[in-house]
Design a protein around this nucleic acid. Structure first.
Length: 232
DNA sequence: GCGACAG
DNA sequence: ATCTTGTCGC
């Protein structure tokens, strides 16, 4: 009910992720030209008495036309607390529920959060790839410090980036998707390389947001769904 | 006690 | 993530 169980749970979470680690492959599992549908995933939360509830929305766009081709959502009680470094365990249950409602099969998922840019290389985007069996990209709006390493601010120019290198390994990169706007943090989820991840993210940027369209739309959608669910 | 802290 | 109005600027 408190500290011992909490530490034990974190140990279990770490064990699960350590076992997945060897299966990460940062090479494209596909041809970029055959990417057609890209899904954006995001969640929003609210309280019901002492309980925490959440909704997960997935928005799929056509990578070429940028039109929305499908939207689904799931919702329910959130049973895992937010623990920095273990976001996957809190959010993935609802993500899986939403994915099961899809009629289209996305070629790629973009998550609101990190992927390989993570202490154990197991941010939500990377962890999710093993449950979805699809390539994934992680896009975070802020930096979760790793081993006391800071990031270098990229130039104030659209498309500028700086790699985040730790122990001689590239974990991810900051990316200035829009001029005069804070950069985002892009990293591989799985079965894709960082350059391709960056290219795809940049191709999903419009004047509405610094975030890739599918993630931005999923974000907006979670707010609508939450409002709808609360007013009942 | 204090600082850190993806979402 | 969430609580929240106006306001400065393109």
């Amino acid at each position: 009910m408190n500290n011992f169980d909490e530490k034990k749970r974190i140990q279990e979470f770490s064990t699960i992720q350590r076992e997945l680690l060897p299966q990460i492959n940062l090479e494209n599992k596909f041809q970029v030209e055959e990417i057609r549908y890209i899904a954006g995933v995001d969640l929003a939360y609210w309280d019901v008495d002492e309980a925490k509830y959440g909704t997960c929305c997935i928005v799929i766009i056509d990578y070429f036309t940028k039109d929305v081709v499908e939207k689904v959502y799931s919702y329910g009680e959130i049973l895992v607390p937010y623990i920095p470094g273990f976001l996957a365990f809190r959010e993935l249950p609802l993500v899986i529920e939403a994915v099961e409602k899809l009629t289209l099969q996305p070629d790629l998922y973009i998550f609101d959060g990190n992927g390989y840019l993570h202490d154990r290389h197991m941010g939500i985007a990377t962890h999710a790839s093993f449950l979805l069996n699809k390539p994934t990209i992680g896009v975070a709006k802020s930096y979760l410090k790793i081993q006391d390493v800071d990031f270098m601010m990229p130039e104030n120019k659209e498309g500028a980036y700086t790699d985040i290198v730790i122990n001689n390994e590239v974990y991810g990169r900051t990316l200035r998707t829009t001029q005069n706007v804070k950069p985002i943090f892009v990293s591989c989820g799985n079965w894709i390389d960082l350059d391709t991840s960056t290219e795809i993210v940049m191709n999903c940027i419009n004047n509405e947001s610094r975030l890739p369209i599918p993630v931005r739309l999923a974000d907006l959608e979670t707010h609508k769904i939450r409002k709808k669910l609360i007013e009942r």
